[in-house]
Design a binder for these strands. Structure first.
Lengths: 335, 335
DNA sequence: CTGAAAGCGCTAACAC
DNA sequence: GTGTTAGCGCTTTCAG
């Protein structure tokens, strides 16, 4: 690795002269600047990031901790975060908590010693279930800027990026009601997550407000240990008159749609389906699934923006929560 | 941030004593060790990674550069890499090249200045098409250990992890032939990638060897700009007698399956389909797609192992190429 | 216009 | 058993 010292020796000048020259300091003669730069280029000199960071206490690196990268939502958010960060001259260090609190705490711990300037994270399921967020508050108390997205907690005081989960599910349910649906089932494999609860409440509220809807709400939950397809099969068996399905997670809407087709439901005549899936699954469904679009790219982008704002201006103590608008996209599985 | 200096001052000892104590040096009295550790724990002392790395020239960080994180194969590989790296005490810095050579070169450039101990990467499409791998060879010449996985190049001399692409496609095609299929179409959206070419050759070779197969091979390629569903629709229209499909990419097999069902093909009686998809799509298909399993987790794990081996023993100049076995998993779309 | 020196936080050879 | 010193590569004040 070629260092300032090497350049200095070759050119018979001091290290500090080289450093200044490379930064176009006007203390240095144009001639010297030129010579230094030429040699630097020739030897492919690159400043040692570690040394620069150590000196400046700025790493230009963001720690990103996500629960599960195989979940397309998080993969897409990560994609957006990486894009925006890279555009702003930042790198990202990625850790996957695998929904485990211990892994999450570990990663936080390991990176909060000068490795990153700040964190962008979404809370692990285990952490949300136990609602034990001390490890997250610990880094915030160390004044390491942190942005939470999607899965957040009221017990953490920091910048946040969320969607209007309640409203999105409410709107989708309202749409099904407006189609005249009489038996609307909610499907969820994220029952114990904050976003799952909010979406469920949106569904419940919509049903409650509907004057001419007299059924009890039906919420079918899929546990980690369950076979989703089996659960959904059972749902159809137990709810023979179902005419509307709202899935509040990534995948169950698609599975339900496939099962319904297999069971010869005419869609959307007999049955409407709305999912929370990303549009990447659309190529796998026919008819095309109607979905609530979460604008995942915007979520990632906004997270980076919020973090960088905080990094550049750490004093503003007021934390902001940014809500990204969702959009109900009606395709072929709704009337 | 609490440093060795802080601890030293509090305890009225020198910085080096503190450092040694924390490393259990037997130069230090048990008593002092205890006092130091107690205070360190109390103040939540964490060694500054940057300083340690600068000193030791070891970052314990791996740079991972993948073409596209929204591609499930790469997401899964990244997952495996993160898992294994983290198990071995390494962090990963992730960069996404977005299939662009410039972005790939940038990332390599930016991280090859002490930020990472080595690279694990899969080559961007643009890079493979142009077959311009100078930027990759540049880091290898700087003696930064690098492991290539999946998309590799003969023009790069480094450790590699691949699957037997040729053999996998060959085996799958052979299976279709053994079912007595007479018109086998190959579907691909990765025509210009090394792996795409190898898989295509496997298909061609199998057909060539089949004595009682007299059709010309039919290879349908889906370009970036194409609408995959449209192309596949056309394929069915133009090949009315198709009775076998092998998809050599992630998704086109699933799309073809859905289209075939829509067109009332009886599967697997009229038509067999084999895909290269990961099993995450299985929940979206019914009947379940038969696939070539790439053992993506093993690929990621092996990449990390190879890299760490090289890091711990940089002198062994012989580069190894590890081939991960694939497996043809017959499910419901084959006889 | 250029250089010497200090220091970011840490480690380790070498004193005492 | 403990402390001093030098140095990893860089930036930056301060002297010259």
């Amino acid at each position: 690795m070629v260092t300032l010292k090497h350049l200095a020796e070759q050119l018979n000048v001091s290290v500090s002269t080289v450093s200044k020259a490379l930064h176009n300091s006007d203390e240095i003669s144009p001639d010297t600047i030129e010579r230094v730069k030429a040699l630097a280029k020739f030897l492919n000199y690159k400043p040692n990031k570690l040394a620069v960071s150590l000196k400046s206490s700025r790493t230009n690196t963001i720690g990103v901790i996500i629960p599960n990268i195989l979940n397309h939502f998080f993969a897409k958010a990560l994609y957006a975060i990486e894009m925006e960060a890279s555009k702003q001259g930042y790198h990202i260090i990625t850790c996957v908590s695998n929904e485990l609190q211990a892994k999450e705490a570990d990663s936080l711990q390991l990176l909060s010693n000068g490795s990153v300037d700040g964190f962008i994270m979404s809370i692990a399921e285990e952490t949300q279930v136990a609602n034990n967020v001390d490890h997250i508050n610990a880094v915030i108390q160390q004044n390491i800027p942190t942005v939470l997205f999607d899965r957040v907690s009221d017990d953490i005081n920091c910048d946040k990026v969320i969607i209007d989960d309640f409203g999105a599910a409410y709107e989708a349910t309202m749409h099904l009601l407006s189609e005249g649906r009489k038996r609307i089932v909610l499907l969820s494999d994220i029952e114990d997550l904050s976003v799952g609860k909010l979406r469920t409440n949106g569904y419940l509220q919509a049903l409650k407000e509907a004057k001419d809807y007299h059924q009890e709400p039906v919420m079918v939950t899929i546990k980690k240990s369950d076979d989703a397809e089996q659960v959904i099969d059972n749902m159809f068996r137990n709810n023979t008159t179902v005419d509307g399905i709202i899935s509040i997670d990534n995948t169950s809407g698609v599975v339900a749609l496939q099962k319904a087709l297999k069971l010869n439901y005419k869609i959307p005549n007999d049955l409407s389906v709305i999912g929370f899936s990303d549009d990447n699954v659309l190529q796998f469904t026919d008819p095309k699934l109607s979905t609530i679009s979460q604008h995942t790219l915007d979520i990632g982008k906004a997270s980076v923006e919020l973090l960088l704002k905080r990094l550049n201006d750490p004093n503003t103590s007021l934390k902001t929560t940014k809500t990204i608008k969702t959009k109900l996209v009606l395709r072929e599985t709704t009337k």
